[in-house]
Amino acid sequence: MTVAADLLKWLVGISTLMVFWEIAGRQAWLGGGLPPLSGVFAYAIEPRSTELLLRSAGITATNASYGFVIGSLIGTLIACSGQIWRPLKQGLDTLSTFVNAIPLIALGPLMIVTVGEQFTPMATAALAVFFAVFVATLGGFERVPNVHRDVTRAYGTAHWRALLLVQFPNAIPSLIDGLKLGVSTAVLGAILGEWFGAPAGLGVLIVSSMQNFQINLLWSAAIIGTVMSAAAYFLLALLQARLLRRLGL
């Protein structure tokens, strides 16, 4: 029910924005750089541009998905390993803070020369997701009730078993919050990675249309990127509601 209410709020917000955009475009308030929304749509539904946009969006979605899965897995695993080997936790916290402090813009070129143009979008997406998921999972572990810790300790439970049976399930709500944040940053990370010189994708489309002053194509690509990350966020919000109900939380 809350998911439906959220969706309604989104729709109201978006339609207001669309109306405002249309007016701003028609009145040319921002000059030629902001065409009316109807013009952008008219351009996007031309068969040739639709084909190009969908193909690029598909590539970006693939890059973002791989990045999302890899980044989430690494983030979760590293957070979990800190729970099993306590002394490791401090070091991992510092390391991940460092990784997050490096701007993606600086990492992009480094990725190009290391993992190559093909895999840079996945790598930048994974890096963006990693930190959100890592921090969220760690936060989840911090919120394990003390009485749950006492119960696991009273049976002399091995760390990995306590993690599996008590700590990890407790951290799931927080982990999903991290995934929700992460999925939007995955799309952003993938587009950024493509920008640095991938063979194809929305990022490539954005760079080339900007340089060739194809305003309608530029806006179409930007809108598709936004819709993609919003859709992914919404999908995860739906999953979250389902899962939390099943977990009795």
Binding site: P145, H148, Y155
Partner: peptide, 22 residues
């Protein structure tokens, strides 16, 4: 604080010490 695991049924909560102890 009862300290029951909210995601486990009453039965599974009672069975938990077996699992915790391996």
């Amino acid at each position: 604080e009862h300290g029951l695991m909210p995601w486990l049924s009453a039965w599974d909560n009672v069975a938990l010490p077996f699992r915790l102890a391996g």
